[in-house]
Each structure stands twice: as structure tokens, then as C-alpha cells.
Design a protein around this nucleic acid. Structure first.
Length: 437
RNA sequence: GCGGUCAUAGCUCAGUUGGUUAGAGCACAAGAUUGUGAAUCUUGGGGUCGCGGGUUCGAGUCCCGUUGGCCGCCCCA
């Protein structure tokens, strides 16, 4: 056992682990690029107040926070949203809209570890600022789906549950609930899937009782799982113009996603409201179809947050995918590749004299961008060919005493085990030709 | 913050009612092998048995504590 252990909940990435992480990041970047999002990054350490302002004082218990040597209260970032709100807010006046940004970054939360959750993790974050209409939701949900589809996951593997806090607020208002009751009821809705009727306990504690008729209406709304069911319920209880008007936004979002060919990935599901109070419209979460894992991704509209954090009034919608649960899903589906780091070329060297000649060729091939490896110590040819085969190189070059004396080099195609002797002057062009096939 | 469970080599594990110097496979390295491919054989490095205390003539083994892993609860931006 090493004297100094890794801090609890932190991860180390040995080369194979990092190769897998890089693979995930690369496909996320590819998806974001395809959707026209620009990548940004920002400090890992932020003023503690940034998170207090967004989430309240109680957030501090779950942060890696401390006082720095200048007496500043700081925290390792637990999420990207406040940071990106600041970045965009500061330059909102000069950024072309819509502002479509993404980042891939590591985050830190001081909490208990569980499957799919650690104290440090990476997230892909994507946000659209400056568009209040549902067009932003279409684009963002499309990107979310592509971020998973790009790995070979299908609609049999995951889906996005789409809901809307506006609908809930309008609906509860039409049932006569005030703001306090609405917020308590949303919290109950959020918990209903897990706790069933017990989810209403907090509401009852706070407001004395829960009318059975009201509860039935809330439950029937919560169980809506299609646009037609939503329309029917609203038509039946049409007591709010806002509700009816909101249906047009739903038509747009679902219609847009359908036109993109993505409707099989999206379910209407008003049982999702997300716990966070700052969401102001559509909210969505991605889950594995089997329901074995915690949420893969989550997001929604937060039109008031940029302003709340000191920026201009700027509508926004965003989501994040965490790397831990997503990685578990890829592994379960056998979609996490075993990435083997192999050089293009392995060089077999006869001895000390030949090594000097070989170094010239190695250096020039490397300058051309080929990945070239060779043994540090003089080894028998048998060992070297074994090493060449184990390295995974596609080509082996042989600088033995015979070849060096003749000014030639043998070039061996490792896959078909065929060899050809060429003049050293032809090496670069021969290699180039081989790899262009 | 709470509960359950586990901890022996880089990895997977064995280790008798407590008894000599803690083992195996895989992996790694050297040699057999100074001109050709994942084999084979030989050899080697690598352990304060998570850490600390206790019981005992004697602890990897039993007891207590602690740290860490895993699983769950709370929470989940």
C-alpha cells in the first residue's frame, strides 16, 4: 500500500483509462461540432459566493470550499452553469446570437460515493443563450441525443423524458394553488415516482391536508405521456389560456424533433419536473431504457438565472451529461472500446552501429507524423520481432548489419508477414505509400 | 451525516481449530536464443497480509478502533 492514497472519491486515469475517457470526449466534441456549438473553458476554482447566489447557503456543505491565502472564500466548481452564465453575461452585448456553447470539464462535489457518482467527475455541458423560443430546445435535445447516439446507442438503450414546469405552474394555478403550494406540489411530483403517495407527506405537513380531488387531478396530469393526452386533458379542463397557448410550444418542440427523425428517442412525461427551483420551462432528463442506472443527463430552461447572477436578462436553456453513469451504460452495452495504443512502425535494430543508422530513419519518419517505436537496448532479433508483433505496429523496419552495409532497409508488413528490401532513400516514399492504402 | 459489507503481490485469488521463512495463476523482467511473430522451459523482481492497538508463548487468522473500497439511505446543481 502506498503511503499516500488517492483522496476518497477521486479517480486516477492510467493510460487505458484515459484512452477510454478520450474516446468519450472525442465523440462528444464531434457531436457538439456537428451541431455548431463552440467550446469554452473556465477556472476550476471560483468564488464561493457564485454558488451561494445560485443555490443558497446550504449548498456549501456539498462543496469543496476553503479560504485561500488572500482570505477569499473559494470553491472547486461543482457545476458549470453559474460560470457559463457569468462568461456569457459579461459579453452578452457583443456575442452573436443564438449563443451556442459547450464545454467538457471536471467537477468536484463533497459527497458520499455511490454507483455512478464520485467526488470528481466530468460533464459535457451545452447551453443556448439568447433564444426564448422552443427552437433552442429542439436544437439542444437534438444534440443531447446525438451525444449518445454517436456511440452506437439506440432508442432501445436510452430515451429522453420531456416535461415542462410552465405547464405545471399554469395547471396548478388553474386548480387554485398559490405560489407556496405550487412549489411544494412540484416537489411532491418530483418525488412521486420513487415514493408514490408518500411523496405528498411534506405537502400535507406544510398545508394540513390534501384534497382527494386535487390529488387525483395532479396524478392524472403527472401521468400524461403523450401530446394527445395532454391536449385532451387541457381541452377537458380548459380553464387557462396560458395552458392552451403553451401547447403551441409543445407542438413546435415535438414537431421539430420528429422532423429531425428523433421522435423515437423522446417521451412526453410530465412526471419529470427536476428538483431545481430555477428551471423556468421545458425540462428533460435522459435515462437508460432498462431503468437500471441513475439519470444519464438532465437539463432545462433557466431564463432568470443569468440576471440573478448579475448579468443581463438573457434567456437560456442547457443540459449536462455526466461521464460516470454514461460510461457505465456504454460498458454494459459493450460499446466502450478497448483502445490499444499501437505505433505505426516498429524498428528492429541489429546492434550499436545499426542503431545510429536507424535513428536517422526513425527521426525523419517521426517528423512526417508517423508513430515509430524501437527497443532501447540491443536485443536478439527473435525478441525484437516478438516486441514488434506485441506493439501492434503495422510495419516493421529492419536495420541489420547486412542491410546497413548495403545501404538498404527491409520493410515488413506485419499483417501478411511479407518482407521487401528497399534502398534507404526510398524509405519515406515506400512508407507513405503503404499507409495511404 | 446514517446503515450493510469487504480489505493478502500491479490484477484474480488460496492460505487448515491461531503454529517454522505467506503461496498460485496472470502480468512484468532476465536467460535459453547475435536474423524473423503472441509458444515452451528456467530464473528473477515485487508483500510491514490497509493502518493502529489488544488477547496469546505465538495473529494474515480472534477482539476493538481507524482508514479506504463497494452497495444502499439522505442529497443529487
Amino acid at each position: 500500500m502506498p503511503e499516500f492514497q488517492t483522496l476518497p472519491g477521486f479517480r486516477e486515469f492510467y493510460p487505458e483509462d484515459l484512452a477510454r475517457r478520450n474516446h468519450v470526449f472525442r465523440l462528444w466534441r464531434q457531436a457538439a461540432n456537428a451541431y455548431g456549438f463552440a467550446e469554452y473553458d473556465a477556472p476550476v476554482l471560483e468564488p464561493l459566493d457564485l454558488y451561494r447566489a445560485k443555490s443558497g447557503e446550504e449548498i456549501e456543505g456539498q462543496l469543496f470550499s476553503f479560504t485561500d491565502k488572500g482570505g477569499r472564500e473559494v470553491a472547486l466548481r461543482p457545476e458549470m452553469t453559474p460560470t457559463v452564465c457569468r462568461l456569457v453575461g459579461e459579453r452578452a452585448g457583443s456575442l452573436k446570437r443564438p449563443i451556442k456553447w459547450y464545454s467538457i470539464a471536471e467537477f468536484y462535489r463533497y459527497e458520499r460515493m455511490q454507483k455512478g457518482r464520485g467526488r470528481c467527475f466530468s460533464q459535457f455541458n451545452a447551453d443556448i443563450f439568447g433564444e426564448s423560443g422552443p427552437e433552442a430546445e429542439i436544437e439542444l435535445i437534438g444534440l443531447l441525443i446525438q451525444c449518445m447516439r454517436g456511440f452506437g446507442l439506440t432508442s432501445a438503450d436510452f430515451y429522453v423524458r420531456l416535461s415542462d414546469r410552465n405547464l405545471w405552474v399554469y395547471y396548478l394555478a388553474s386548480l387554485g394553488l398559490n405560489d407556496a403550494k405550487t412549489s411544494a406540489m412540484l416537489s411532491a411530483v418530483d418525488k412521486y415516482e420513487k415514493y408514490a403517495d408518500d411523496a405528498f407527506k411534506a405537502y400535507i405537513t406544510e398545508f394540513g391536508s390534501l384534497d382527494e380531488g386535487l390529488k387525483a387531478k395532479v396524478l392524472s396530469f403527472l401521468k400524461i405521456n403523450s401530446l394527445s393526452a395532454l391536449k385532451a386533458l387541457i381541452a377537458e379542463q380548459a380553464s387557462s389560456e396560458k395552458l392552451t397557448a403553451r401547447l403551441a410550444d409543445w407542438e413546435k418542440v415535438l414537431g421539430g424533433l420528429d422532423a429531425m427523425g428523433l421522435s423515437e428517442f423522446v417521451s412526453v412525461d410530465l412526471g419529470v419536473v427536476r428538483g431545481l427551483a430555477y428551471y423556468t420551462g421545458f425540462v428533460f432528463e435522459a435515462f437508460d431504457r432498462k431503468g437500471e442506472l441513475r439519470a444519464l443527463a438532465g437539463g432545462g430552461r433557466y431564463d432568470n438565472l443569468v440576471k440573478k447572477l448579475g448579468g443581463p436578462d438573457l434567456p437560456a436553456v442547457g443540459f449536462a451529461i455526466g461521464d460516470m453513469t454514461f460510461g457505465l451504460l456504454l460498458e454494459e452495452r459493450g460499446l466502450m472500446p478497448t483502445i490499444v495504443k499501437a505505433p505505426d512502425i516498429y524498428v528492429v535494430i541489429g546492434g550499436e552501429l545499426e542503431r545510429k543508422v536507424a535513428f536517422g530513419a526513425i527521426s525523419s519518419l517521426r517528423a512526417l507524423g508517423y508513430s515509430v517505436d524501437y527497443p532501447f537496448k540491443d536485443l536478439g532479433f527473435g525478441k525484437q520481432f516478438k516486441a514488434a508483433a506485441e506493439s501492434g505496429a503495422k510495419l516493421a523496419l529492419i536495420f541489420g548489419s547486412d542491410e546497413v552495409a548495403k545501404g538498404s532497409v527491409k520493410i515488413r508488413d506485419m499483417a501478411v508477414r511479407s518482407e521487401e528490401e528497399i534502398a534507404r532513400s526510398e524509405l519515406e516514399s515506400t512508407v507513405r505509400e503503404f499507409f495511404s492504402k
